[in-house]
Amino acid sequence: HMTFVALYDYVASGETDLSFKKGERLQIVNNTEGDWWLAHSLTTGRTGYIPSNYVAPSD
C-alpha cells in the first residue's frame, strides 16, 4: 500500500469518512474512486474515505 501524509486536519462528514489530523500517516487502500480515496490510518487504525487533496505522498 502507498503511504501518504495528511496536509491538513479533516473532520469526517459522514459515517464512511475518516477523520484525521495534519501530519497523520495514512495507507491508501483504494484510490480508484476519483477525489475520495479509501484509506487506513496508521495512527488510529481506523479505515474510511478521505479527500485526496488533503494528503500528499510520504517519502
Rank of each mutant, 00 (worst) to 15 (best):
V5T: 10
N31M: 15
W36Y: 09
W37Y: 06
S41T: 02
D17H: 14
G14L: 09
T47I: 11
N31W: 14
N30T: 09
G45W: 05
G48K: 01
Y54A: 12
F4G: 03
G23W: 05
G23Y: 05
E15H: 12
W36Q: 06
D17M: 13
A56T: 13
P57T: 08
G48P: 00
D9E: 07
V29Q: 08
Y54S: 10
S52P: 07
L26N: 00
E15L: 13
L7G: 02
I28H: 01
D59A: 13
V29P: 05
A39S: 03
D17L: 10
I28S: 04
N31C: 14
R46Q: 11
T32S: 13
L18E: 02
R25E: 10
W36G: 02
G14W: 08
K22L: 05
S52K: 14
G23N: 05
S58A: 14
R46T: 06
Y10K: 02
K21F: 10
E24C: 03
S19Y: 04
T32K: 11
I50V: 11
D59H: 15
E33D: 14
R46D: 07
W36R: 11
S13M: 14
W37K: 04
E33F: 13
T43K: 11
E15S: 12
L38H: 04
K22A: 11
T47K: 08
A39T: 02
S13L: 13
L7D: 03
S41E: 02
L38G: 01
N31Y: 14
T16A: 11
T32E: 12
K21M: 11
K21A: 10
G48H: 02
F20H: 01
P57N: 07
R25G: 04
P57L: 12
E33Q: 15
L18P: 05
H40E: 09
Y54M: 11
V55D: 02
V29D: 06
T3F: 14
G23E: 03
R46V: 06
M2F: 10
T43H: 11
I28F: 03
L38R: 04
T32D: 13
D9K: 02
W36F: 08
G14F: 10
Y10M: 03
K21R: 12
E33N: 15
F20A: 01
A6S: 05
R25N: 08
Y10F: 08
G14M: 10
P51G: 01
T44V: 02
F4A: 06
Y10D: 00
V55T: 04
S52F: 08
S58Q: 13
E15G: 09
P57G: 07
W36K: 09
L18H: 02
R46S: 07
Q27R: 15
T32I: 11
D17C: 11
S13H: 13
Y10V: 02
P51Y: 05
L7T: 04
K22I: 07
L42Y: 08
P57V: 10
G14D: 08
T16Y: 15
D59W: 14
H1Y: 14
S52T: 06
L26Y: 01
A56G: 10
N53D: 09
Y54N: 03
P57F: 09
V29R: 07
V5Q: 05
S41Y: 00
L42P: 08
G23R: 02
D59I: 13
I50H: 00
E33P: 10
V29G: 05
S52V: 07
E24R: 00
A12Q: 06
W36V: 06
Y54L: 12
A12M: 04
N53Q: 11
A39C: 06
F4K: 03
L42E: 08
S19V: 04
V29T: 07
T3P: 06
L42M: 10
V11S: 10
K21I: 09
I28A: 08
S58T: 13
I50C: 02
W37D: 01
G34A: 14
W36D: 02
K22T: 07
S13T: 15
E24Y: 01
E24M: 02
F4H: 06
E33W: 11
W37E: 01
S41I: 03
N30L: 11
D9S: 07
S58P: 10
N53V: 09
Q27P: 00
T32C: 12
S13K: 14
N30P: 06
D35G: 10
Y10S: 01
